[in-house]
Design a binder for these strands. Structure first.
Lengths: 134, 134
DNA sequence: GCTTGACCTGGAGCTAACTCCAGGTGCTAT
DNA sequence: ATAGCACCTGGAGTTAGCTCCAGGTCAAGC
């Protein structure tokens, strides 16, 4: 599979795919006689995995290290598991934080709605930058 | 309240606070006769609000626009509400995506655990970059 | 056999969001 | 009165993660 197809399929730009290979996040992809990349099924699955992790904000260098270990073999299982656990914990914390910000946003939006309604009825104004509800 | 205290209190660096004022995210803070910033209660609440939104990944320029509107007055209510709604929707989508990545991470960690156990019993290996469980 | 389009490379450029620095001012305690 | 510390400014530097570019190769269609 050529790079354009993988790009199409994954939603990552061609440049990004090449960049990932350059920095070692994607192991060297097999080339044909003209030097053109030919992604196999495993490569594509790796791309999809990377895309997923990147979207969640896991840094490239962490994933690169993970990939480096994965290529070594079974003796790096424990190390890889540790990386994933660490990232999972970070991610969980981030989700919790974002969830509480989401709640705050909803609270504020609701406040705006009420206040817009109140304005029509000429009621008293309320406070703007109230974050006490976090 | 001086900038060091606000920094301490908010967890944002002094440089970041000054940067926020520079780019208009934080409206000009009152200065004493020597030109030194003296944050009042409203400033501090704004800082806390900004910190919360920034942690959730809402861009500085979006927040700057929001702040600009907030300073104009009540006639920008609708516009501000629209900004918040848009950011809320983006945030909700991001959280959902991260949650599914979190699930995948847990699945993989679990897989590692089982495989580590299996290795001790000499069972057959399984596939590495499986994202089909998304 | 020439043009076109997809691919290649190394390296430069870009954006967001800080972060740091040099050089300067002004309380405050010795 | 002077040393030290917190503050100030404008501007430069940094980091992550791409993104773009110039210049080149190659296979296919007209």
């Amino acid at each position: 599979m050529k790079i354009a197809e993988v790009s199409e399929l994954s939603g990552l730009s061609i440049d990004t795919l090449r960049y990932y290979e350059r920095v070692g996040l994607l192991p060297p992809v097999h080339r044909n006689d003209s030097g053109i990349r030919d992604f196999d099924e495993l490569d594509v699955r790796r791309v999809q995995f990377i895309k997923c992790m990147r979207q969640a904000g896991i840094p490239v260098d962490v994933l690169t290290e993970y990939m480096r270990l994965a290529l070594i073999g079974d003796e790096t299982f424990e190390a890889r598991k540790n990386i994933l656990e660490e990232q999972r914990d970070l991610l969980a914390a981030q989700i919790a934080e974002m969830q509480s910000t989401l709640d705050l946003l909803n609270y504020k939006i609701n406040f705006y709605e009420e206040r817009l309604a109140a304005v029509e009825k000429n009621l008293s104004p309320m406070e703007e930058f109230d974050v006490t509800t976090q």
